[in-house]
Nucleic acid binder design. Structure first.
Lengths: 323, 323
DNA sequence: GGTTGTTGTGGTAACGCTGTCATCACGGTA
DNA sequence: TACCGTGATGACAGCGTTACCACAACAACC
């Protein structure tokens, strides 16, 4: 029963050649059955398929990627996925790319993106066919590595006129302005803001404040807390605000989790929402409208961003024109 | 300036040999500087490090993995990461494995795990050094593929006396029983349950019902909705329950999102929580205690599961004994 | 001074696959 | 009959790295 002794380095698992031998064809034909079936006659295909099934062959994409220079891997860097903001974007990205035969490697860069550079180095060594980054602020070394890698890059969740390559996002400053205009238009006059301290949160703050300044409102307490904001910190900061003698009639929170905390604190003090104080959230809970009281929030198409980013990247990877 | 023409297949990017040539050493020495620095003299190391920096060399783990049979990749399969339950487990897993030099490939199998088998096939072709699966229910074909792959497998978020390999989780049936006992002990007698229809949710339901049955309570309306449950569906189902003439004094929800929906519906009808109706959640919001009114819930150490799973897998992958 | 480690380095041959080009069989055309 | 084009298959080499073993230099021992 013993076969010719395999090399000492062989893994012992079934290879393309084993399948080829069993099917009575050359290895390259087996490869074509798997990757370019249109080049093979139906008869050959059936024989090979049968041999694959009988051997339990599992392709080795490390070898395939090395030979073809296509890893069919896409890397996605997010600060965190514990917030449903990024988690849903990641999900729709993974779904869409999965349909096209790509898999997604998750990199968590943290807040602030301290590890982004090291992480990128590790990720590039896997030779991904594309990279997705959250945000537009990257270190010079990160930018340089990305350019040197010569692969499609999609930046998401922010806006800049000068992306590295492709961009799917929106302007956080404009969101802040829109919220300021909206709340002012509703008749509110005593504002406060509670938000994270990351780049995008600060941009929303800037937009919010400049909108209010245009309407003649200058004295707006703003609280910056370390990202990511949670219900707990929202509640704490609202307590501090109220204990400090501030009586805002509208609070803009930089995430819906913070907003829920603010509401909880206000309610526990017997304040009515939005009668005594209006609370505005930002984008991370799709069920804001179903809470009681309903939470006004800025709706972001989180899955849409992932889907569009995936399409843009696929277009580029498959030689079409991209975004 | 022109160098000797590279082969038409070469990618043109910097390789280990290029670095070796520049440093005046053999390729294998460069490899050792990167992977086994303890085998190289400080002098050689410095020369090589310098050459690496000057060339901008990025290792190719496809080639390295092929040669060494170690991909330094771990795959993790979750039904979804849009719930903070699995997202946090995924985060702590990624963090811990990242420290040890491994990266994590995310696979989303969906509810129910329809795609698990195909996904696994695609994932195994990347030759991961380990696999993490959510839950203990897998198709025979999945089990067989996992065993054939001969790599460490960790199943999480559930309990069975017969795991495929290693297991980090807890019994959902026992959770259900504990909730039943707890609520009965608090004096509640008219129960209802709203939960997802996935395996684990059903186990919690069974435990809950059998506990109540032991206490002589039989007529418990239970509503199963497609996973994952959301605040919206929780609110809808609570409305149906109340409109149907049921007046439960305690509702066990199979997720905290559902629980929040139930609370919202009750409050919008002027009911007090927990005066008119007590609401019990399950494990996905770590800030349940900070909502108003505070939500009673079953606390699960989501990050702990990821961390322990990572440790167990590392132990096995690095030749230690595992769990 | 010969033998025995020990330490650092290198040569060679894989790892399992695919790009490239060659070959072969076949039918249609001149 | 000779020629050509087309479609299916195969031979060969190479992708960039690491395992394995060999070897040289040097120190330590009796």
């Amino acid at each position: 029963m013993s076969r010719s002794a395999p090399s000492s380095r062989s893994s012992g698992s079934v290879t393309l050649s084993d399948v080829a031998k069993l099917a009575g064809v050359s290895p390259i034909t087996v490869s074509r059955v798997l990757n370019r079936p249109e080049l093979v006659t139906p008869d050959t295909m059936e024989i090979v398929r049968d041999a694959i099934a009988r051997t339990g062959y599992v392709p080795n994409m490390l070898a395939g990627g090395l030979a073809s220079k296509r890893s069919r891997l896409v890397a996605a860097l997010f600060p965190t996925i514990a917030s449903s903001m990024f988690a849903e974007t990641m999900e729709s990205l993974t779904d869409r790319l999965g349909e096209a035969g790509y898999q997604v490697l998750l990199g968590l860069s943290g807040y602030p993106a301290a590890r982004e550079d090291d992480l990128l180095e590790a990720i590039l060594s896997r030779r991904p066919d594309g990279i997705l980054l959250t945000g537009i602020i990257h270190s010079p070394s990160t930018r340089q590595k990305l350019l040197a890698a010569k692969i499609p890059v999609v930046e998401i969740w922010d806006y800049t006129p000068t992306p590295i390559d492709m961009l799917v996002g929106f302007s956080h400053e404009r969101v802040g302005e829109a919220v300021g205009d909206y709340l002012f238009g509703k008749g509110y006059r005593r504002f406060a803001m509670i938000g994270g301290d990351d780049d995008r949160a600060m941009q929303r703050r800037n937009g919010f404040l400049s909108s209010l300044a245009r309407h003649g409102i200058e004295d707006v307490p703003t609280i910056a807390i370390p990202a990511p904001g949670t219900l707990r910190t929202g509640r704490q900061e609202m307590a501090r605000l109220l204990d400090g003698g501030r009586k805002p009639d509208a609070v803009f929170c930089n995430s819906d989790a913070l907003a829920q905390g603010v509401i909880a604190e206000a309610q526990s003090r017997g304040m009515s929402i939005p009668g005594d104080v209006a609370v505005m959230g930002f984008g991370d809970l799709d069920f804001a409208a179903y809470t009681f009281p309903a939470l006004t929030t800025v709706r972001i198409d989180r899955r849409g961003i992932g889907r569009i980013a995936a399409e843009a990247m696929l277009a580029r990877m498959e030689g079409r024109n991209g975004l």
